[in-house]
């Protein structure tokens, strides 16, 4: 077999393994956003995996994303059929509905945002480790809270 075929076979096996994991060992993760200040715009929630060499949160780590009309107070969304592993949730309240987290010229968010476990960074986002939630081998529903923080106004 050629080297190229080897790679293809490897990839196919990997896909099969992933498929098997999803069907046999999938878990669901319920994310509860707390402290939404208004029903303006949307709540955007992204589920991340760790990516070596990339600082969390980054688009490269996003494995699933959910956008819902915002609800003042608390709201819940569920990511389903997740293979076991470590995840982290980053969410923001897209109050102006433009699809992006509004920031000032220093890059500081000017819309509400939050991370799983209530993780917070210092003058920046938290580390992936601080926001980690682990989906185990056993099927079932995990739940994680994301308290939303808003810049003072």
């Amino acid at each position: 077999m050629t080297r190229s075929n080897n790679t293809l076979v490897g990839l196919a096996l990997a896909c099969l393994a992933l498929f098997a994991a999803q069907t046999a060992l999938a878990g669901d993760l319920e994310v509860r956003l707390d402290g939404l200040r208004s029903a303006d715009g949307d709540a955007r929630i992204a589920l991340h995996r760790r990516v070596d060499g990339v600082k969390f949160p980054d688009g490269a780590g996003v494995v699933a994303a959910i956008s819902r009309r915002a609800v003042a107070g608390s709201m819940r969304v569920v990511f389903t059929d997740l293979p076991p592993g470590d995840y982290a949730v980053a969410a923001f309240h897209d109050a102006d509905g433009d699809g992006e987290l509004a920031t000032n010229l220093l890059g500081m968010p000017t819309e509400g945002y939050g991370f799983s476990n209530g993780a917070r960074g210092f003058m920046g986002p938290p580390r992936f480790d601080a926001a980690t939630v682990t989906v185990g081998q056993e099927a079932g529903l995990l739940s994680v809270a994301v308290p939303m923080g808003y810049p003072e106004s």
Partner: peptide, 13 residues
């Protein structure tokens, strides 16, 4: 009152 928002780009700066 509120914090002065000279423009969205400098909110909170």
């Amino acid at each position: 009152g509120r914090f002065v928002d000279w423009a969205p780009s400098v909110a909170g700066v």
